[in-house]
Structures are given as C-alpha cells and as structure tokens.
C-alpha cells in the first residue's frame, strides 16, 4: 500500500518522535501546542480534563477516543470556540486562553468542523476566497473602492484555483457549495482552511460520512499537508483510520488523556482497549463505523 511509502517529512517526523516514551503527557522535542490543566465541565459532568499535552511540530497527530471522550470539546477549547473552566495553553509560545476564535485562526491555527460547514449559498470559489487572510477589500470603506482590492482578489483567486485543482474541485468553482456531495464539502472545507495559510491544521473527523473511495484521497491530502511543512492534528474515533497516516496518536477517554505514542504501540495498549471497550462493549475494535 502506498501509505507505507516513507517520504522525507514522514521520516523526519517519525525520527523526532522515536526516542520519546509512550506515556500520557510526555514532553516532545519541538512542540507547537502545549496545554496545561485544561478543564471543561458541563453541569456536573467533566467533559475535558487534560493535565499536560504537547503536539509535535511537523507531524500528523491523531486524537482518538470513543464517542463522548471529549475530543471535539477539547478541539473547541483549543481553538477558542468554547471556554474552559480553567487551564492554559500556548501555540508557538503564545498563550491562547481567552483568545477569540478568529484571532486563534489568524495566528495560524485553523480548524474544520465535524459537521461540514460549507457556506451553501456562496459559490465554491467564494468559499475559497473567503479564507484568505487580511484582505484589503474586507474593510467596509475600501470595499466600496474596487480598484483598491481588485489586484489582491486576483491573486487570491489564483491561489484558490490552484488549491481547488489539487483537491479536484476546479470544475465546481462556480457552483453553489450546496451543490457539492458530502465528501466534496469535506474537501472544500479543508482546501478553504488552507487559504488561511495555517501552520497547524486541526481537522475534526475529516473522514466521517465520506464514502470509501474519497477516504483514500482525503488521507492522501492530509499527508500532503505534512509534506508542505504544516502540522496536522485530527480527531477520529475509528482507530483503523489513523494507523496508516498518523505519526503519533493521543487517546482520550472520559475527558482525560489515557495514552499516547506511535500508532502501533498505542493500538495494543491495554488502557486504550479498555477505554474503547468500556465505552461500547458491543463494538469490536476494528469494526468500521457505518
């Protein structure tokens, strides 16, 4: 399978993580995100309680765990879409606690959503252009003077076209986003996130609801991101999906990090099997959703 082919970046990422002990909260050689004591409670229920977590730069890290483990909530907290009861975390050394989501995105930490948020009544191209950062024409006064932003708009359109063709959506550029299939919307959302020029791409269940044919292509795109020097953190509840593409796996259960390590070792970790079996006894480990 082509997934096992080693690329230079993959090699580098694996090498950098090779010497690390596979224990929850372990320190990484070059962390891009460091989180400490992040706690989020809903009523009496503790949804997230992460003591210490580091995300390695330039690697693909998978965040897995059974349904209700707090993965998406943790994602929301890191990106400012939800506020924790307590905790601190940094991105590239910049503290992010209490920072609004749009500012987090501007710093280079861009996320997607579990339920795709394609902007239906905008064209695919407009969806893409929207992603470009700091556009001149987004100011209300200069918006009225097209000559001030026309050139930038052309550049953004060009970049968007390139990305769209990479994601095989170029023929859809002028269609409404609502006209895309579910899988295509996932691709669009990922491509749109790239328009922001992120350093860290955070994908919330990128494979959910995507047909198997498209899944392979999605996995390929995720690996591509690493090749282009980006860091990827993605949420998935299906362990098999992550085996091939991730350099490091973090396992959450009941809000806590219960294990982390390279994919192979994590998959055989009894704590992980416990976490999964504890959550759904009826579901064998390697059974696929849907």
């Amino acid at each position: 399978m082509q997934e096992h082919k080693l690329t230079p970046k993959k090699e580098a990422a694996v090498a950098a993580l090779a010497s690390i002990a596979a224990i929850p909260g372990v320190k990484k050689p070059d962390p891009i995100v460091i989180a400490d004591n992040v706690v989020r409670k809903f009523g009496g229920l503790t949804a997230v309680d992460v003591e210490h977590l580091e995300i390695q730069r330039g690697a693909i890290t998978a965040l897995i765990g059974p349904n209700g483990a707090g993965k998406t909530t943790f994602f929301n907290l890191l990106t400012g879409f939800d506020k924790p009861n307590s905790g601190n975390w940094t991105f590239n050394g910049i503290p992010l606690a209490g920072v609004a989501p749009h500012k987090v995105a501007r710093l280079g930490m861009v996320r997607t959503f579990q339920l795709t948020k394609a902007l239906f009544r905008l064209s695919v191209m407009d969806n893409m252009r929207l992603g470009a950062k700091n556009q001149i024409g987004e100011g209300i006064l200069r918006a009225l003077l097209p000559f001030t932003w026309k050139k930038e708009e052309l550049q953004n359109t060009q970049r968007a076209t390139e990305l769209l063709s990479r994601f095989k959506l170029e023929t859809k550029a002028d269609d409404f986003a609502a006209a895309l299939s579910g899988g295509q919307r996932k691709l669009l959302e990922m491509a749109r996130a790239l328009m922001v020029n992120p350093e860290l791409v955070m994908l919330d269940e990128p494979m959910a609801g995507v047909n198997p044919a498209l899944t392979q292509s999605l996995l390929g795109h995720i690996k591509d991101l690493r090749e282009q020097g980006m860091t990827v953190l993605f949420v998935e509840h299906d362990m098999d999906m992550v085996r091939d593409i991730s350099d490091w796996v973090i396992v959450m259960a009941q809000g806590k990090i219960v294990a982390e390590g390279p994919p192979e070792s994590v998959m055989s970790d009894p704590a992980v099997i416990d976490a999964y079996l504890g959550a759904h006894h009826d579901q064998p480990l390697d059974q696929e959703e849907e």
Partner: peptide
C-alpha cells in the same frame, strides 16, 4: 458595490454559518 466586495462576501458567509467564518479568522 459593497455586496460584491470581499466585505460583502464575509457578510453573506456570516448568514450561512457564523462559526465557519470565525474559523477562517
């Protein structure tokens, strides 16, 4: 004029989905 500018694009995008627009900075 304003609705065919990038400003208008942001505005229309907000109508479609605020959170997506936030996630794009």
């Amino acid at each position: 004029l304003i609705m065919r500018s990038p400003w208008g694009r942001v505005i229309k995008a907000i109508r479609e989905d605020e959170e997506a627009v936030r996630s794009l900075g």
